[in-house]
């Protein structure tokens, strides 16, 4: 995969938990254009291993002199977000992938309802720029714990005006999902990014109201979950790899020097899919890609987020 070398041009503490990073090309040239909702994967070398974490690109897709991402420091972080917060400083160089978009706006929609929870606001920051440029009707509904902890509210007020609706939980403000989705004109699409319960709630509400599947969109990147350690045997490479508790299978395979395909590293895109030849005790699927029957068959696995329930796996790699 072609990587881009970037330099950290600025870091800003946005809230106690969120930092905003600005990246520029080392030689000062322009970065590639992208579409609203795109993400990049940032590669970080730390503690003798490489972390690769996906982050949504914020800012306007048409302004390509710099890329912007925001990183929320995750509790129980396996290292990626903690490393970004503690060890990345201005002037450092990093490698990033070209932008990938797994959360695109439906170009034929007549109206867009964007629903964000907390740090889930980030992919919408670039999408609203596209929507404004195209002059399409939209509403941004942004829910968070408290105004003190919410990122980018002032910025959004300026840029979205009356299309922005904020909901501060500590102020007793709640988003009435049922009300919002019951009275939308034909051709409306809904998008949600945020904590898992919120995503599920939006999807379920829209479905129950009879919204067609293709008008419901969500982005739910998973961080690779911590699990039990296990061993992976690679049939073609003829090697054995230990997967420690706090490392994903994909990371462990890469650390062993075996080239594996990947794109989103969050269980969404399906690119890293591997064939499972043998297992002892089943698979712990965490991805959003495989169908339920594929998951049940135990013949395929997404090594970016999924793990073995047993002690050992034999993979077709």
């Amino acid at each position: 995969m072609n990587m881009i070398d970037v330099k950290v041009a600025a870091i800003k503490q946005v809230t106690p938990l969120i930092k905003h990073f600005t990246f520029v090309k080392e030689d000062g040239s322009e970065l590639p254009s992208f579409s609203g909702g795109s993400h990049i994967v940032v590669a970080l070398d730390a503690d003798g291993r490489t972390y690769r974490n996906p982050y949504s690109l914020m800012g306007s897709p048409t302004e390509t002199d710099a890329y912007h991402i925001s990183v929320r420091r995750q509790e129980n972080s396996r290292g990626g977000s903690a490393f970004m917060h503690e060890n990345v400083s201005v002037g450092m160089t990093l490698k990033i992938t070209h932008p990938v978009n797994l959360f695109t706006l439906a170009k034929m929609a007549h109206k867009h309802i964007l629903i964000a929870g907390g740090i889930g606001i980030t992919p919408f920051m670039s999408q609203i720029e596209d929507l404004k440029r195209l002059g399409v009707e939209y509403e941004l509904h942004y829910a968070f714990r408290s105004y003190a902890q919410a990122a980018f509210v002032d910025e959004l007020k300026k840029s979205c005006g009356s299309s922005l609706y904020c909901y501060g939980d500590s102020d007793g403000e709640r988003l009435d999902m049922q009300g919002l989705l019951s009275w939308q004109p034909l051709g409306t699409h809904v998008y949600v990014c945020g904590p898992s319960p919120m995503v599920v709630s939006v999807i379920e509400t829209a479905r129950n109201l009879g919204w067609p599947e293709h008008s419901i969109h969500n982005e739910q990147f998973l961080s690779p979950p911590v699990g039990e350690p296990f061993k992976v045997q690679l049939a073609k490479s003829e090697i054995e790899v230990e997967v420690p508790a706090e490392m994903s299978m994909l990371e462990a395979i890469e650390a062993a020097g075996v080239k594996a395909e990947y794109l989103c590293r969050g269980g969404v895109c399906g690119r890293c899919e591997l064939g499972v030849l043998e297992h002892d005790g089943g698979l712990e699927h965490h991805d959003h890609f495989l169908t339920e029957s594929e998951k049940a068959s135990c013949r395929k696995i997404m090594p970016c987020v999924s793990r073995s329930k047993g002690k050992r796996l034999l993979l077709d790699l």
């Binding site: 019951s182 009275w183 004109p185 034909l186 009879g210 919204w211």
Partner: peptide
């Protein structure tokens, strides 16, 4: 159609 809402089948 202009007077109908999402959820129409």
């Amino acid at each position: 159609l202009p007077d109908t809402r999402m959820g129409l089948r």
